[in-house]
Design a protein around this nucleic acid. Sequence first.
DNA 1: ACAATATGTGAGTTTTAGCTCACATTGATC
DNA 2: GATCAATGTGAGCTAAAACTCACATATTGT
Lengths: 210, 210
Amino acid sequence: MPRLAHKTTKTQPRKLPTQPRAQETVEAIVAATKRVLVRYGYEKTTTNKIAEVAGVSIGSLYQYFPSKESIITALIDRHMATMLEVLASTYAASTETSTIAESVRSVIHAAFAAHRVNPKLHRVLIEQMQRMDAADRLDGFEEQAQQLVEAFLSNHAHQIRRKNVKLAARAALLAVRGTTLWTVLRAPDQLEDLEFIDEISDMITRYLVA
Amino acid sequence: MPRLAHKTTKTQPRKLPTQPRAQETVEAIVAATKRVLVRYGYEKTTTNKIAEVAGVSIGSLYQYFPSKESIITALIDRHMATMLEVLASTYAASTETSTIAESVRSVIHAAFAAHRVNPKLHRVLIEQMQRMDAADRLDGFEEQAQQLVEAFLSNHAHQIRRKNVKLAARAALLAVRGTTLWTVLRAPDQLEDLEFIDEISDMITRYLVA
DNA sequence: ACAATATGTGAGTTTTAGCTCACATTGATC
DNA sequence: GATCAATGTGAGCTAAAACTCACATATTGT
């Protein structure tokens, strides 16, 4: 009997690859999907095209992914994981700096850096997260980020002008998130503009500290 | 000979409606498209469904719109016009208030108000603007907004901390635009949260003035 | 009244892309 | 090396949706 994934849904893998050969196939499909998505966009990305670019047959593709959307879902998970790594490592590398201004600045730079991984892919995936109901995949991450910022503000309460911590965290977080979103979607070149990123950092710092 | 539109392209109307009856047909199609889009999203919105909801035949639809995308394009133009009106009127109604803080606050409130017109439709249209190459329809508007903010900053130069006017205008504009974008896409309830909007206004004001 | 033009109709065509399935090949286990 | 599971193949099925077109009805101008 073939080794099936626990639940065979529209987004879960159909069969779990065990042999190295099969895992290479899956990787080839994932890699090909990235390239095709970036090049042609979601609508013109066909499963047959993906299989062709991956150098596997269409049948193999459907052995591991039950639908086109499931491939996108897998990509979203992988891409978010990569971004989190970038965010974590950049942030970790700058914990020695201790003033609030420097902390804010390093985190915001990390946020932009995380968006530099593969902006075009990021854009396509964002669009699809909206369209599918995969947006809730982000919600957990959002909540986590909110908590983190709130904790940061509480820890430095004596230097923070804002008394309503929840509100301040939400405003600061959203201004940054909104700016990175807009930048990725409509002005990707700006991801490299360190002067601009410093400006945003300064904006947030001034908002937070007296 | 039927009265044709000047250029018959993929996005321009095929035939111009002259009789009132025909204009009612076009309006019915546009109105039906809004409702169907909001209810089902772009992908599940079929031209046949639109015609059915509009109470006209599919043939009539294709007499005035050469493609499904052309209907979306028409909607985008109308929706942007509505938003501009809201923005303009809200701003005009608050020109008496004269301090920088009050001006900034009223403009930002107007920006959020403009997004309250039909948030769900707004979201669908944004997604489609990205997908199609209709994004350049926004670019003109962006440029105009940038100039406006720059002019505002120049006029109050003596009270503004920022020396690089272009950069400051870009940062302020993007923070607001990004926040409204994120809010419409991911947290539409927040459009009504006046406390939050005031918080963003305060952030921008502190960034700009000494 | 009667062209001529504008508008309206909807069954049917066409295309396209997601997906299946019967069969072939490779690898593991004894 | 024999058996069985795991993996791979791709021609073709199927459904859905954008769009056409031959024809019908309504309106306008003279």
